[in-house]
């Protein structure tokens, strides 16, 4: 298990000392190489969980192990952050340097990696996100999607086993969103990196092996995307919007038509064609 959260609770403490629990008894386990999507509406605790994986937060109760390392142990801090990289929502607020390659070097520099190796890692990271041409560019001249790809490269240069994407596509245009999603899939399939995708767009779960649905700080449903998405009652409760394919199938079933559950447009089309 690369991520193992056992009975995790997390409380934000206000200035008056009041506790508000953003996560309540959350158990999430993720295997090396999995692509897992965590869905939930605003304020359901998704970002809070993301920060636990990266040891930016530590659990109030319970424990979370990253590749076997306990996030509560200060000595593990750098190793955990190296293992579990994180890409945030706003592309402008996570780039530190004025030149693409310098930004990508930031993580490895912090880790004290020798210069030659940093260069190799920059080459590698840029090629994975298809941004080789932009090595010497200034990030503020790039599009939102390109900036996010640089942010991904910056994480890749630390050679992580896990990358957490906390709504990293939310501020992008459709093209940028698609590019970034495709890169996530490639990272997962070709580089063997465990992906934790946090989003409130259900359709972004297309590439995932498993989905978790968070609601008010609790995991209310977990499993194969098709099984989870077609549990209409649960989805309705969370206020999430079903992807088009699932919505169509649901509406057809309401009128009494039986059709195979799928999230793939082609398969859905085939299913419809086979209807009498």
């Amino acid at each position: 298990m690369i991520v193992e959260a056992n009975g995790v609770r997390f409380a934000y403490v206000s200035d008056e000392g009041k506790y508000t629990f953003a996560l309540n008894d959350v158990d999430i386990t993720i295997e090396q190489g999995e692509f897992v999507t965590i869905l939930g509406h605003n304020g359901s605790g998704k970002s809070t969980f993301a920060k636990l994986v990266n040891a930016l937060n530590v659990p109030t109760n319970g424990e979370i192990l990253i590749d076997g390392m306990d996030t509560r142990d200060e000595d593990n801090l750098l190793d955990i952050r190296k293992t579990a990289g994180m890409v945030f929502q706003n592309p402008d607020n996570q780039l530190v340097a004025t030149i693409v390659e310098e930004d990508i070097a930031f993580g490895p520099e912090n880790l004290g990696i020798p210069r030659e190796e940093i260069r190799e890692r920059i080459d590698y990271a840029l090629s994975v996100v298809h941004m080789e041409k932009y090595r010497k560019h200034a990030p503020h001249m790039l599009s939102g999607g390109q900036k996010q790809r640089i942010a991904i490269a910056g994480v890749l240069a630390m050679k992580p086993k896990i990358i957490v994407f906390d709504e990293s596509t939310a501020m992008l245009d459709p093209k940028g969103r698609k590019d970034v999603l495709n890169i996530m899939r490639d990272l997962n399939r070709n580089e063997g990196i465990t992906i934790i995708l946090i989003t409130h767009y259900m359709e972004e779960a297309v590439y995932s092996d498993r989905v978790y649905i968070l609601d008010d700080g609790k995991v209310i449903k977990q499993g194969d995307p098709v099984d989870v998405f077609f549990d209409y009652d649960t989805i309705e409760k969370t206020g999430l919007t079903l992807p088009f394919e699932a919505k169509l199938i649901r509406d057809m079933e309401k009128t009494g038509v039986a059709i195979r559950h799928t999230l793939d447009t082609e398969e859905l089309l085939e299913g419809i064609c086979q209807l009498k």
Partner: peptide
């Protein structure tokens, strides 16, 4: 807000002050 985000992003990328840092160039 940006400063807060950036601080978090830097921490996530293992920033821990100037000790034991290497330089790209």
């Amino acid at each position: 807000k940006r400063a807060e985000d950036l601080a978090l992003a830097m921490e996530a990328r293992c920033y821990h002050g100037g000790d034991n840092r290497t330089r790209l160039v």
